[in-house]
């Protein structure tokens, strides 16, 4: 089964995934329509700024066992058996933030959602765009990502590719271009800017 795989070294911090995610989880399903909606839809993927201003796309890992699910007081967090996706039942959620205390990645937010109980603040997190997937679409964050920081693929295939990359990089005499030369340069520039004192 395909999953969203994050390649943080390729993230340029453009935050387009956040816009696409919010739009995909809006009533209208479009960015333009989403802007006028109440409650205003919000992203479930969170691009943070690393120590050197590099982007970091932070999204739910759908852990197993999921700490949020074990910590949930009313039993509102559950796992969709067919996809392994960890979901929140907005009607059962009591907004106690026990999941915020449990999530080691800090990817749960609290606000009202259009398809939840009206005006009730609930825990909101990535749902792997199951509704889009049911229509044959890839998750919105992956679809919009232009730098390849987010891909939708079978985990074993992605792992094999990464293993091959590592193997190539250590084989003696191999001429191996960095997998993403532009990104390496950008990262080096950001790091230098942060480390070299101003003036």
């Amino acid at each position: 089964m395909k999953k969203v795989i994050v390649h943080p070294e390729r993230c340029v911090g453009c935050m387009q995934c956040m816009l696409a995610c919010a739009a995909a989880h809006s009533r209208s399903g479009t960015l333009l329509g989403a802007l006028g909606e109440a409650p205003l839809p919000r992203s479930r993927i969170h691009v943070g700024v690393g120590a050197f201003d590099e982007g970091f796309p932070n999204r739910c890992r759908h852990c197993d066992p999921a700490p949020c699910m074990l910590a949930c007081l009313p039993g509102a967090i559950y796992r969709d058996a067919s996809s392994g996706t960890v979901l929140v039942d907005a009607d059962r959620c009591i907004n106690c933030a026990s999941c915020a205390m449990a999530c080691p990645y800090g990817v749960i937010r609290y606000h009202a959602v259009w398809d939840g109980p009206p005006e009730k603040i609930v825990a909101v997190k990535c749902d792997n765009c199951l509704a889009r997937q049911a229509q044959g679409l890839v998750p919105a964050c992956v679809e919009i990502c232009k730098s390849g920081a987010l891909t939708f693929e079978a985990p074993d295939r992605a792992a094999r590719r990464r293993t091959d990359e590592v193997a190539r990089s250590v084989s003696s005499g191999a001429i191996c271009p960095p997998p993403a030369p532009g990104f390496a340069l950008l990262a080096a520039h950001k790091r230098a800017r942060a480390e070299v004192p101003a003036g």
Binding site: G48, V49, N58
Partner: peptide, 8 residues
Amino acid sequence: FNAGRLVS
């Protein structure tokens, strides 16, 4: 603060 600060 976000989790990205811990990995870089």
